[in-house]
């Protein structure tokens, strides 16, 4: 879902970059020192994820893990994915330097939004609700990112609906896989160390 160099018009590039700068600034400000390794680790997970090709479905699509980034990092998903996308652009020519802002925004914004939308569900006492929330938090950002990409491509590709449908259909298996990854990650972290998610530690249970 990396948009290549030379596809988008300057206004979209500049707008995307501006939004990404805002997101990165918020992310940097909100990141505490002890969270920096976590940001770097999720950044590398995102960097590596684009090499994992899911061979199911009509098109070759790769894992994205933007939902997981947003879920575990919140706003820090912006700097995390900016760095990873920069590395992908420089080393592998996925995306590109001029589209870096747009690509960062496309990936990070839906992820951050989903975290805020579903965190209530994820931390509810009801296990089924919690699992559903985590799944949505992993899966939905992929689709929303795809819709953002399709919206930005309106001027180059034939039509929004067609492009959006292609992207979403191609990424359906990815969404399911990422949803399951998020469920696994959340249930593990909740058991082991809930404060990673910005929650108060469950001290009363740990003893």
């Amino acid at each position: 879902m990396h948009i290549s160099e030379g596809v988008l018009s300057p206004p979209i590039l500049i707008g995307g970059a501006a939004l990404a700068v805002v997101g990165v600034a918020i992310g940097l400000k909100k990141t505490k020192q002890e969270d920096i390794p976590k940001v770097a680790l999720l950044s590398s997970a995102f960097f590596v994820a684009s090499f994992i090709h899911v061979p199911i479905g009509p098109s070759s699509a790769h894992l994205i893990l933007n939902g997981l980034n947003g879920l575990l990092l919140g706003w820090a998903a912006f700097p995390s994915m900016l760095v990873a996308l920069f590395m992908q652009a420089v080393l592998f020519q996925f995306g590109g330097i001029t589209v870096l802002g747009v690509n960062t925004f496309n990936m990070a914004f839906p992820a951050v939004m989903c975290r805020f939308l579903f965190s209530r569900m994820i931390f509810s006492g009801n296990n089924a609700v919690s699992v559903t929330g985590a799944f949505l938090c992993g899966a939905l950002p992929v689709m929303l990112s795809g819709l953002l990409v399709a919206a930005e491509l309106v001027f180059t590709e034939e039509s929004f609906v067609q492009t959006a449908r292609l992207i979403v259909v191609a990424h359906l298996p990815i969404m399911i896989v990422e949803g399951l990854i998020a469920v696994g990650a959340i249930s593990f972290i909740k058991k082991v160390k809930p404060e990673i998610l910005g929650l108060p530690p469950r001290a009363e249970q740990d003893g």
């Binding site: 879902m1 990396h2 290549s4 390794p37 976590k38 680790l41 999720l42 590398s44 997970a45 590596v48 994820a49 684009s50 090499f51 994992i52 090709h53 061979p55 070759s60 699509a61 790769h62 894992l63 592998f92 020519q93 996925f94 990650a185 593990f188 972290i189 082991v192 160390k193 990673i196």
Partner: peptide, 30 residues
């Protein structure tokens, strides 16, 4: 307990890296 979260994320990254060795596909058109 202090290392558990980093350990988890390291485990995640490493397993992703290992997976990636077997199938190095990605999207870029030539």
């Amino acid at each position: 307990m202090i290392f558990s979260r980093t350990r988890f994320i390291i485990a995640l990254s490493v397993s992703l890296l290992v997976l990636s060795v077997t199938s190095a596909h990605a999207h870029r058109v030539n």
